[in-house]
């Protein structure tokens, strides 16, 4: 067995592009840099091959953290075929669509003071409570428009698609997904402001049945139709688990990239290695996987910028 493949020291140049830096990291080939290089190559492969159905899973405060536009563009340009997300990320997409913004703050702040001023904090981001109140009103109007039949049984993805069609703002993830008919799978929707709003509304005005199982059918259909299956996991949580589990119906994903800060030692799913997923038939082989241990707001934009640079010859971005 030949163990010896030289590590190339990274060389930086003035004005180098994202792809050039990623290539240096790939040539270096080890530790975090090597993982970044491999992750970029795997994502480029998924994006370039039309046989791939690309599942993007989102957990954690990625939309407040500045990734909204990137995700919307990936959907808009057909690079992402199915989005699996927490409800909260879509709530934050919606409050921006309604004209509110997330504000840059600091971790070290008096949270009591924020409470008194009706401001919520997510790490070093602030958002006013009013944004959510306005969202509730807006949702209330939208829900009123639902037909009797829709109210009897609507899956979270159908509801989110309906919401997406009502948004005119260009940078919205839900609007892009609705335009491109990219399913937004969200069986955990009740665990979000949208969920609690649906609950209060359904107990007062009309009866509404949210059919979480409906999203399973939709996701499994996508899995069955995929000639090749690829997954990009940002964060972890149930979007990661749900999507990997659905992929057991085709003996696992062909290619997988995950970016997380979670650790495998406590045995939780978010930090679990992709190698472990092989034993569950969620992932086919270790060769086509990469786990980048990094804050997704740092690693993902760098990888996407590099991949788009290379992808330009394939499909105009």
């Amino acid at each position: 067995m030949n163990f010896l493949k030289k590590v190339k020291q990274i060389k930086l140049r003035r004005g180098m592009t994202a792809s050039q830096l990623i290539k240096e990291m790939d040539a270096c080939g080890v530790l975090g840099a090597g993982k970044m290089g491999k992750a970029a190559k795997l994502i480029a492969k998924m994006f370039a091959d039309p046989d791939y159905t690309v599942f993007l899973t989102l957990a954690g405060a990625l939309v407040p953290g500045g990734l909204r536009g990137i995700i919307a563009e990936l959907i808009e340009h057909g690079y992402v075929n199915v989005l699996i997300t927490t409800g909260a990320n879509m709530v934050h997409d919606l409050v921006e669509a309604l004209g509110f913004s997330h504000e840059i703050g600091v971790f070290e702040v008096q949270d009591e003071q924020l409470k008194n001023k009706e401001i919520g904090r997510i790490g070093d981001i602030y958002i006013q409570h009013k944004a959510f109140q306005e969202l509730e009103k807006w949702l209330h109007h939208l829900l009123k428009e639902l037909t009797e039949q829709e109210c009897q049984r609507i899956s979270p993805s159908s509801l989110l698609q309906k919401i997406g069609t009502q948004i005119s703002q260009k940078d919205s993830i839900l609007a892009a997904a609705a335009r491109k008919e990219v399913p937004v799978i969200c069986p955990g929707l009740p665990d979000s402001i949208i969920g609690f709003q649906l609950w209060t509304w359904s107990s007062s005005d009309k009866k509404l049945v949210l059919d979480s199982l409906g999203d399973i059918s939709k996701l499994v259909d996508e899995v069955y139709q995929a000639r090749k299956s690829g997954i990009i996991i940002l964060g972890g949580g149930w979007p990661k688990h749900f999507t990997l589990f659905a992929n057991t119906f085709r003996e696992g994903v062909d290619t997988a990239v995950q970016i997380t800060m979670d650790r495998p030692e406590p045995g939780g799913l978010s930090g679990a290695t992709l190698k472990e997923a092989i034993s569950w038939r969620k992932v086919k082989s270790n060769e086509n996987t990469a786990t980048v241990i990094c804050d997704a707001t740092i690693a993902f934009p760098l990888i996407v910028a590099a991949v788009l640079e290379e992808a330009q010859a394939l499909r105009e971005f």
Partner: peptide, 29 residues
């Protein structure tokens, strides 16, 4: 306000960092 990052093909590293700066939050910030 947090301004969502915009990526372009062939953007340079400093252009990417400027987008990080507009986001201004979490690891990117």
């Amino acid at each position: 306000p947090v301004v969502h990052m915009k990526l372009k093909a062939r953007m340079t590293i400093n252009q990417l960092i400027q987008e990080f700066s507009k986001s201004g939050s979490f690891g990117a910030g």
